[in-house]
Design a binder for these strands. Structure first.
Lengths: 212, 212
DNA sequence: AGCATATACGGACTGCTGGTCCGGTTATGG
DNA sequence: CCATAACCGGACCAGCAGTCCGTATATGCT
C-alpha cells in the first residue's frame, strides 16, 4: 500500500508552504512551526513526512533538480550520454547554474542546515560523481575528484545571490562554466613530480589544533 | 583607558575555554553557556567581550591567522611583497592551507554561524582581496574576483577534514596549491567573445523562484 | 453498507539555544 | 582612601528542532 491519500495531500501542502515561506520571507524564517501552520497541518505531520528540517529542504531541492538529474542520466545529448565530455560538462553546469540562480535562498538554507554531512548527501554525491567522471574523461591527468568538489563548492547560496543581478542574471553560471572550461584547457603540468618547496614546514603549526 | 585588567583576563579565559571545547567536543558543542561555564565567567561577560557567537568564533579564527595576515602585508618575500605574484600566491596558499588543516572544526563552526554575511567578513575580504590581486597581476585576462571566491570556497571545514588524514596530512593544501597553479597556467582563452550556445534558455526556469 | 485496523493526525511538551538586562561588585585614577 | 566608571554574573526571554501519544480517519474486506 503506497501512501494514504491524505498523507499525499499533506506532503504537497507542506512543500508548497515551505516554498512560499522561502520566497516571501528569508530562508531562516522557514521554521517547522511556521511551515506547519501555513500548510494547515500539525507539526508532527511535517516530521513524519520529511524526518527533519534538513529532510524537508532536501525534498524541496530534489524536486527542483529531478528533471536535470534524469536528463543527465538518460536524456539526449549534450546533457545525457553521447556527447563529448567537455560538452556534457558545459551543458550540465549551464543547467545546474540556472537552478542555483533560481533558488539561491533555498541553497543557503540547505547549506546551513546540512553543515557537516553535506558530502554524504545523495544529491551531492550524484552531482559530484557526474562532474568528476566528465572531468576525468577529458583530463585524466588532473585531480578530478578534488576539482569536482571545487566546482560544487562555488555553488554557495550567498555567492550566487551576490552575483545574480537583474541586469546580468546569468553571471554566476557564466563564471562557473568558464571556470570548468579553463580547467579543462589547462596545459599538462610539466610532470607529476611533487616539488618540495623551501617553505614546507617552515611555519610552526597552530599551537592548539582541534580534533587531532 | 585601554581595558581593565579583569576584563583582559576574562577575554583570554573565554578564548581558551572556547578552544578547549572546540578541540574536545565537536564544533556544535561550543555553546555560549558552556564556554562561559568552562571559562568560569558569566554568560553576559562572553557577550560583552565578543558581541555574539559569531564574534567569538571570529576572534578565535583571527587569533590563529593574525601572523599570516601580517606576513602577507609586511613580511619578507615570498609571503610578503617583493616576490613574483605566482610565488606569493603559492606561499600564501601553503600557509592558509596549513591553518585550515589545523583548524577544520573551527572552520566548520564559523561557516555555519556566519552563513549569510560570510562575504562581508573583514577577514574574508582580506584573503579575497589578496588572492584576487595576485591572480589579476599574473593573469589579467581571467576573472580574478570570481576565481578568488572559488579558491576560498574550497576552504570548507568539512572538506578539509575529509581530505586530511594522518598518513597524508597536507593533501588538502597540495590540492589547493595545484588548483591555483593550474589556473595560472591555463592558456589564454581564444578570445573574450561570449558564445551563445544552443542551450541558452532551453529549459524552463523553476516555476517558483525565491527572492526575485 | 458497515466494520476493523493500520495509518496518519495535531499540538502540547521538552530541552536547548543565542541573546538581553540589571542590581550588585570591583578595579582604577586622583 | 574614595568616587565612579567599568565590569560582572546569572536569571530571564523568545524561539528553535524534534518527540510523543491520545484521537481521528482512510482504506480494504466482508
Amino acid at each position: 500500500m503506497p501512501e494514504r491519500a491524505d498523507a499525499a495531500r499533506n506532503r504537497r501542502a507542506i512543500l508548497r508552504a515551505a516554498e512560499r515561506l522561502l520566497a516571501d520571507q528569508g530562508g531562516d524564517h522557514v521554521t517547522l512551526d511556521r511551515v506547519a501552520a501555513l500548510a494547515g497541518v500539525g507539526k508532527g505531520t511535517v516530521f513524519r513526512r520529511f524526518g527533519s528540517r534538513v529532510g524537508l529542504l532536501n525534498a524541496l531541492l530534489e524536486e527542483r533538480s529531478r528533471t536535470l538529474r534524469q536528463a543527465v542520466a538518460d536524456g539526449p545529448p549534450p546533457l545525457g550520454p553521447g556527447a563529448p565530455a567537455h560538452e556534457r560538462l558545459d551543458a550540465f553546469l549551464d543547467e545546474l547554474g540556472r537552478i542555483a540562480e533560481g533558488n539561491a535562498t533555498l541553497l543557503s538554507a540547505h547549506e546551513q542546515a546540512c553543515a557537516e554531512d553535506k558530502y554524504s548527501d545523495p544529491s551531492y554525491l550524484f552531482w559530484h560523481g557526474h562532474i568528476a567522471a566528465l572531468l576525468a574523461e577529458e583530463r585524466p591527468d588532473l585531480d578530478a575528484e578534488f576539482l569536482a568538489h571545487t566546482i560544487l563548492a562555488v555553488f554557495d547560496g550567498a555567492l550566487v545571490r551576490r552575483m545574480t543581478t537583474p541586469d546580468d542574471p546569468r553571471r554566476f553560471t557564466r563564471s562557473v562554466r568558464s571556470l570548468a572550461t579553463t580547467l579543462i584547457a589547462a596545459p599538462r603540468p610539466d610532470t607529476g613530480r611533487r616539488v618540495a618547496t623551501e617553505r614546507d614546514g617552515r611555519w610552526p603549526a597552530a599551537t592548539i589544533r582541534d580534533r587531532p
